[in-house]
């Protein structure tokens, strides 16, 4: 993270890249790192926070071991992303942006992952899988979790 900032000459427009590096290293952005970046790049804390929350890519909370991110872009939404999302919410008792208490699963939503032809698409641990329905999605998540418990 220091290297990223140095490479960019501590310019304020290095903000996104720096946040990127932090997230890669720690999985999420906590207040301490946001403050640190604001200070080092001389950007106001609120501005750093604004950027970090504008892009769905950044997480401000620690992520679970597995991350399931349901595309709610227009195409996927029309093709039933809402149902998939509702099923996961109900099954695991979490809202988008939350992680199960056992730290196994984080649920996220994204707006279009560029796989509209395969709608509805779900991203499982970074891998985009198209043509999903409620059963398939549930099965994949069950696979993760039962694996963890065995």
């Amino acid at each position: 993270m220091n290297a990223t900032m140095r490479r960019n000459g501590y310019r304020a427009d290095a903000l996104i890249e720096t946040l990127h590096t932090i997230q890669e290293s720690f999985g999420f952005l906590d207040d301490v790192s946001l403050r640190f970046v604001a200070d080092a790049l001389r950007v106001a804390p609120s501005q750093v926070y604004g950027v970090a929350t504008f892009y769905h890519f950044f997480n401000l909370k620690p992520q679970g071991k597995h991350v399931c991110s349901v595309c709610t872009g227009t195409a996927c939404y029309i093709k039933g992303a809402g149902k998939i999302l509702d099923a996961i919410k109900e099954q695991h008792g979490i809202e988008p942006g939350q992680t199960t208490p056992d730290g196994e699963l984080s649920l996220l939503t994204v707006r279009c992952v560029g796989a509209c032809g395969l709608a509805p698409a779900v991203v499982f641990d970074g891998q985009v899988i198209g043509n999903q329905d409620v059963e398939q999605t549930q099965a994949r998540i069950e696979g993760w979790i039962s694996h963890a418990n065995s």
């Binding site: 403050r35 106001a44 609120s46 501005q47 750093v48 926070y49 604004g50 929350t53």
Partner: peptide, 18 residues
């Protein structure tokens, strides 16, 4: 620069610092 905007679209809100 105390203020900024958090989130986007219908979730956008004004915020102070972090």
């Amino acid at each position: 620069h105390t203020w900024d905007m958090r989130g986007r679209g219908i979730d956008a809100r004004v915020i102070t610092d972090l």
